[in-house]
Design a protein around this nucleic acid. Structure first.
Lengths: 207, 207
DNA sequence: TATGTTGCCATACAAATGTATGGTATTATT
DNA sequence: AATAATACCATACATTTGTATGGCAACATA
């Protein structure tokens, strides 16, 4: 039962997540204190206790930097991913694209791959469901049949990719959604990457 | 120009990468020493110096756990799959690793968990399919509604778990398979662990 | 008014941590 | 044969780190 964090607690929490992603390691109490101008570590310590009490983190006693992020939502940090998409509202939805993805969700990524959370069920026949996390590799050439992430008119879609002689087809597995056809000279289309894996966390979904 | 690591150095390097992925933080000298049975931290320290000299890591002096991986981080790391479990009819479990999978480093797998490959489709209404790899945590108490792995008469099954007053029910999501009921005094039943995550690789499934 | 939460400070201390230095033995490499 | 690299141990030391405790002020709530 995680209560809401206060503004300061939220800032500290986000600093921790940030450090984890950017530097690879969570900060020490001293580093948190330094960041927020505290003159001693006890202040940071007390904030961590409060944040832990609210269920956002979990600390291992006596171990340095042992701060675990327990709230799954916070595992995903708002962060501009793609220049083109992030420039506008990343969540803008193309009128005809029924399924969209939450773009602002990167985790500490080796190379430049990233995670996207899928919304919508147009890929449910490919066993990808709303809420699943797809792992996208941008350094991967899209081949026919691959499931790809693409930007189409400022909206992002996850579809199965087919390259034809004169056009590209983006197919939904779900027959309810019709195939999107893109002509070769259509400019507002770009392949973001190839979906190389799917991950689904089951820990919270207790029915 | 990174030279080759010795066997021991490579083991230590991989332990560091492993810890970073699994626990979220790199290890301390003491933790490395403990892992490899060293009686003092100096040994681990000297190995780190050697590994750094070869260009695989970068350490920030005086900072705990501040080990940075400078070599192109692996996107996938091999993990052993310990066996197969049946989502439909029970299937034999194998004593040793039967296979390994390249698990994306972003799929955070708790250190005490292991992987099993699912066979059968009795959980397909829970969106788990044959060929999927489930992440199983043995140190996780099974609660009603959890999807668990259990051993039943020397066979392993993946089912949804419900504890009733006088019995345990293992339910398939797929109505084709009927619920398994276990009486309290039935001995040849043991819960192996709770499924905390699912991973599915898409790379090979190119149609 | 009383009480609890929040936010920050100071001091103190044991344990953990990184670092430095010297030693021994084994195994390449030249 | 001489040298360097590897692999481990022991001891020592200054910092860092987490933790504990007490105090103070602002504010909201009961």
């Amino acid at each position: 039962m995680s209560k809401n964090l206060t503004t300061i607690q939220k800032n500290i929490f986000e600093f921790i997540v940030d450090q984890k992603i950017m530097k690879g390691i969570p900060p020490t109490l001293a580093e948190i204190s330094n960041k927020f101008g505290y003159k001693n570590r006890a202040t940071a310590q007390q904030h961590l206790i409060a944040i832990e009490k609210k269920g956002y983190i979990k600390k291992s006693p006596k171990l340095s930097r042992a701060i675990e992020i327990t709230v799954e939502e916070k595992f995903f940090i708002p962060r501009p991913i793609l220049g083109e998409v992030a420039a506008g509202n990343p969540l803008t939805i193309y009128p005809d694209a029924i399924d969209s993805i939450e773009l602002p969700t990167i985790v500490r990524m080796p190379l430049d791959s990233f995670l996207l959370r899928v919304k919508g069920d147009s890929l449910k026949d490919a066993y990808i469901f709303s809420g699943d996390v797809v792992i996208v590799n941008p350094n991967h050439e899209a081949q026919n049949g691959h499931i790809i992430v693409a930007v189409l008119d400022d909206a992002a879609v996850v579809k199965r990719f087919y390259k034809r002689k004169d056009r590209i087809e983006l197919v939904s597995e779900n027959p309810e959604y019709k195939t999107i056809v893109i002509n070769k000279n259509y400019l507002k289309f770009k392949i973001v990457g190839v979906v190389v894996g799917i991950y689904r966390s089951l820990e919270k979904k207790v029915g």
